[in-house]
């Protein structure tokens, strides 16, 4: 009897475990199916390096280079802001802050992670965008730069909390060992603590990037959504995610435009996969050392 119970529970757990794999494979399969049929009709090279996205022109143009540039620009911008600030905040929280400040900061950062992206987008649109427009004296405040700042806010909680965990789990003995050699606090943090915590910090950055690159609602609201290749970060851009979200409702199911959006999703999936892969490579390398 106990044996049977054991078996059943084991089966249930196995089923739950396998479920996530099934989901990913199904999603991937679906994307490939729709994407491939699009590529057969339109051509993958024209799709990737085409500069014009005119899905409803006649004949339609499906070039997503401007969308890729938009996504990359906003993501890189967000990382440039969020990564240094996030890591330094994590160092401050885990190594330097007095107890009370530490507790307050930690709960505030966690609270920040709970803000829905539409709220972030809304705040960015009504408060940050006018500021950017006036400050840089440009025609519109809805730019890649504005998007980067708001996305940096979204990525920061992830980066801070996970890096903070990694830094805190560096054994106290490492620090003590470095101090006993006459290292200053800053030398210890930079050379020992950050180095030992590096795998965790890289994982944190990658998760942050993952959040930024997949973010849809906020970027749709604050980047201006102009599908052209920008000359600077102070111009409106349109990201891949925003394109899918904005246009999916207008397409004919099974039509060329509909499948083009799936092809974009496929590209997006590929990029995220690449980011994860690079992260794993880094993590693997630092572990082997």
């Amino acid at each position: 009897m106990r044996k049977i119970k054991d078996d059943i529970i084991e089966k249930i757990i196995f089923f739950c475990g396998i479920l996530s794999i099934v989901f990913v494979v199904l999603i991937f399969g679906f994307l490939i199916k729709e994407g491939i049929s699009f590529f057969k009709e339109f051509g993958i090279v024209d799709f990737i390096i085409g500069k014009f996205w005119y899905p409803s022109a006649n004949p339609p143009e499906f070039g997503i280079l401007s969308l890729i540039v938009g996504s990359v620009l906003v993501t890189v911008g967000a990382c440039i802001i969020a990564v240094p600030v996030g890591i330094m905040a994590a160092v401050y929280i885990s190594e330097l802050a007095p107890k009370q400040i530490k507790d307050i900061l930690k709960s505030l950062v966690e609270l920040m992670a709970a803000v829905p992206s539409v709220v972030i987008g809304f705040v960015g649109m009504v408060s940050l965008a006018p500021l950017v427009r006036v400050f840089f004296n440009i025609p519109t405040g809805l730019t890649a730069f504005t998007g980067s700042i708001m996305l940096a806010f979204m990525a920061m909680p992830t980066i801070v909390t996970i890096s903070e965990d990694a830094i805190r789990s560096v054994p106290w003995q490492y620090k003590e060992g470095a101090f006993a050699l006459g290292a200053t606090k800053w030398q210890t943090i930079r050379r020992i603590v950050l180095k030992a915590a590096m795998p965790g910090i890289i994982a944190a950055i990658m998760l942050g990037i993952g959040r930024v690159i997949g973010e849809t609602m906020a970027v749709m609201m604050i980047t201006g959504n102009a599908a052209h290749i920008p000359h600077s970060i102070f111009e409106p851009v349109r990201t891949m995610t925003a394109t899918i979200a904005a246009e999916m409702g207008e397409t004919v199911t099974g039509g060329l435009h509909y499948r083009a959006l799936f092809a974009i999703a496929l590209v997006l999936f590929f990029i995220t996969f690449l980011v994860n892969f690079i992260a794993d490579l880094f993590l693997g390398r630092s572990k082997n050392k």
Partner: peptide, 19 residues
């Protein structure tokens, strides 16, 4: 820091730095 460079310390548990 200067003091600790002149007076070094070895701990109970060996703590090689992660390098």
């Amino acid at each position: 820091e200067k003091l600790r460079m002149r007076v070094g310390m070895l701990f109970a548990m060996p703590i090689p730095l992660p390098m």
